[in-house]
Amino acid sequence: MHFVPSTTIIMIVAFILLYVFLNKYAFGPLFGIMEKRRELIQEQITTAEQSRTEAEQFLAEQKAALDQARKDAYEIIEQSKTTSTKQANEIVNTAKAEATRLKEDAVKDIESEKNKAIATLRGEVGELSVKIASKIIEKQVDSKSQEQLVNQYLKEVGGRP
């Protein structure tokens, strides 16, 4: 074992120079890059977390919107169903009422025509009877039998509806 003191000094100087060199040109920059990468990764994690939360929120919103739309559609269908049923009923009722009215009108018309016909007939029959009566009277004036005759005719004519 031999000890050369100059080697010790040279070693110290060499080590310090090496440290300065590595600090400046090798590990220093590497350290900076590592720090940057750490920041980048941190940032990416934060961003990913954020977008995940956003996506979840969007999903929830979409789900709610979909549910709302479904509900709305159901309501609209229900509503239109009710409306159509109501309308159908209305139409049927109107038609029924119309038919009834028409029938009643017809019946009334028939009645009035019948009454008119009866009245006319009655007038004519009266006239006719007077004529017949006058003719008979011309032949034989017997008021009693004449009246009886008239009534008999009238009965015969009026009793026939």
């Binding site: 000890f3 003191p5 010790t8 070693m11 110290i12 060499a14 310090i16």
Partner: peptide, 15 residues
């Protein structure tokens, strides 16, 4: 090896 010299390792140890 520089580290096979006691004087060199003494330098490191002095640092």
């Amino acid at each position: 090896s520089p580290t096979a010299d006691i004087a060199a390792t003494a330098g490191l140890a002095l640092v």
